[in-house]
């Protein structure tokens, strides 16, 4: 917000306008508050524009008929400058998208995949986080490193062997030719996606929960155990409620990532059909055929697909904030 107007080269004791303005800001509380507010508005405004503009762009595309998108005149009618704005008001796109493609089924697939992965990840990561965060045993650091190493691999590294196995081919040791086991044919089923997702997102969840569980004072767990719980009971009744922000973070991260996932699912679902457990993104891409691309429907579908996530994040965020302000970790 500083207005550098070039007069700061004045060397008089009074100083130039900039120097005067600076010192007045330093001395005057009211001016300082105004400056901070202005800086906040600029920063927040920049953030909002960069994050919300894509949504606006999606909305513009959804409301504009396809023909207009490709040939339309984007200049504003009165001012004449080019600014993306809807060419017409084709709300019907939000209905048409469900007529052309059973988009609700794709969304359902994504929900099932995301929820089951989240449940598996939280269940396993809670136990692992308890062990890593609260128990002392030899080799703990090394084991944690191995777990984290899984997340260092790019998912693509696992793709080919997993795809091969999930097709139902026997898993064979290279060069030796020894057959280890034969996987059932999992492609086109949720298992073929939930299994690799869980494995990929577990390390991060374990890491988050380990740090959270490690912060819970030992005395609380001891108290719960003396009062009558088992170790597992203490974990469920005391440690997990007190780590609610950590659990929410791990759950939201996992859910959103799986909900948006396309790489694995596009391959494990052999075709973009809802019957093949193709997810949301597969649905969006189904509006593209060999000869046509319905941008307006794709945009409408994107907006519909994003809405549940927006709702979940808002709800979860409230939970996270309320968990933090309840002072759960203070003893």
């Amino acid at each position: 917000m500083a207005t550098t107007d070039g007069s700061n080269d004045s060397t008089e004791s009074e100083g130039g306008p900039l120097a005067r303005w600076t010192s007045s800001v330093i001395e005057n509380q009211e001016k300082r508050d105004r400056l901070y507010r202005a800086l906040f508005i600029v920063a927040a405004g920049f953030f909002l524009v960069t994050t919300l503009f894509p949504f606006y762009w999606l909305l513009v595309l959804a409301l504009t008929p396809t023909s207009q998108i490709l040939t339309g005149d984007w200049s504003l009618p009165i001012i004449g400058i080019e600014f993306p704005h809807p060419q017409g008001f084709n709300v019907y796109a939000f209905v048409e998208m469900f007529e052309q493609v059973p988009f609700h089924l794709f969304m359902f697939n994504s929900f099932v995949l995301a929820i089951s992965t989240t449940v598996i990840v939280l269940a396993v990561a809670t136990l692992a986080g308890y062990v890593f965060g609260r128990l002392e045993f030899p080799g703990r650091g090394l084991l944690m490193l191995v777990v984290l190493m899984i997340s260092y691999f790019p998912p693509a590294a696992f793709l080919v062997p997993l795809f091969d196995a999930f097709l139902g081919n026997a898993v064979v040791i290279p060069f030796l030719g020894i057959e280890l086991f034969e996987s059932p044919r999992l492609v086109n089923t949720p298992a073929s996606m939930v299994l690799p997702f869980s494995a990929l997102f577990l390390p991060l969840a374990i890491f988050i929960l380990t740090t959270f569980y490690a912060q819970i004072p030992d005395g609380l767990e001891d108290a719960a155990r003396v009062e009558g719980t088992t170790r597992l009971g203490a974990l469920v009744r005391v440690i997990m409620p007190l780590s609610a922000p950590g659990l929410a973070t791990a759950a939201v991260l996992t859910f959103i990532t799986v909900y948006n996932e396309y790489f694995f699912s596009s391959i494990m679902a052999l075709e973009n059909n809802p019957e093949n457990w193709s997810p949301l993104l597969g649905g969006i891409l189904s509006y593209q055929t060999q000869y046509t691309t319905e941008f307006n429907l794709m945009a409408a579908a994107s907006i519909v697909g994003v809405l549940p996530i927006v709702i979940i994040v808002i709800v979860a965020q409230e939970r996270i904030v309320s968990g933090l302000t309840a002072g759960g970790l203070k003893e």
Binding site: P217, G219, L220, D222, A223, A224, R225, V226, E227, G228, T229, T230, V238, P241, L242, A326, G327, G328, L329, K330, E331
Partner: peptide, 20 residues
Amino acid sequence: LPPKDRGVAMVFQNIALFPH
């Protein structure tokens, strides 16, 4: 025996009330 089956109750140095 695990703590819960011993018929003991304990008061801790850091009090250890469940904050939630």
